[in-house]
Amino acid sequence: MIDLTGRSAVVLGAGSVIGRAIALTVAQLGASVAAVDRDPLAVARTALLVEPPGDVRDYEADVADAAGFDVVRREIEIEIGVPHIVVEVTGAADAVTGPAVRAFLDGMVRRGRGGRIVLVRGVGAGHGDRDAAVGLTTSLAGELAGDGILVNCVCAGPTDTPLLAAQPRWVRQRLEREIPLRRLAHPDEIAAAVAFFASDRASFVTGQVLSVSGGLTMAR
C-alpha cells in the first residue's frame, strides 16, 4: 500500500544495521536511494544487498568534513535528484552523525514541493538521545511546515544488531526482561515506521516522535 515510486531518498548512516534495513525497505517500496555512510565497506554492502529492481547507490561521506560532504551531496543531487526523503540514522557505531540533514534542505526548500525528514534515534534514557531528538524534531518541523516539509522521528528500542550480539549474554537477557513484548526489535520493524513517515499515508503528521520499542518507553 505504501508506494514511493519516483521518489528519491537519502539515507544517512546507511552502513549501520538499522540504516541498511531502512535503505533496503525504502528501495523496495520504489524509491531511488542514496545510501551514505562514512564507512565505505559497510555502505557498499548495503547497496549490494538490494534486490532488483531496487535502486540503491552507495556514497562514502563524513559529515565532519564539510567540504567533502558537500561534494558528495552535489553528486547525489545530480545522480538521483534533490531528495524527497532524507533519513538520518545516528546512534550506531558506523553512522554519519551530525547536521547532515541540513545540507539537503536548501535544495528541497528551493524546489518547493515539500518533502520528508525522518530522524532515527535510540530510546536510550541514559544518553539523553530521545530528549535531544524531540527538540530537534519539533524545532525543525515548526520551521519547515511552511515549506511542506514534514519532520518526524523514530526512536528505536533495543534492536537485534551485531553490536548487541557482541555484548555479554546477560545484557541481552536483561533487556528482554525489561521490554514488555519480551524480545528485541528486528531492524525491519524500525524501517517500517520510517517508511510510514516517508509515505503519503503520513501527509498530516509532523513534529512527532514514535518509539518502536516493544513498549519499553511510553513517554508522554
Binding site: 514488555p180 526489535a185 516493544g214
Partner: peptide, 10 residues
Amino acid sequence: EASFITGQVL
C-alpha cells in the same frame, strides 16, 4: 508494519 510498537501515541 507496527509489530514492535505498543503503548505509543501518534
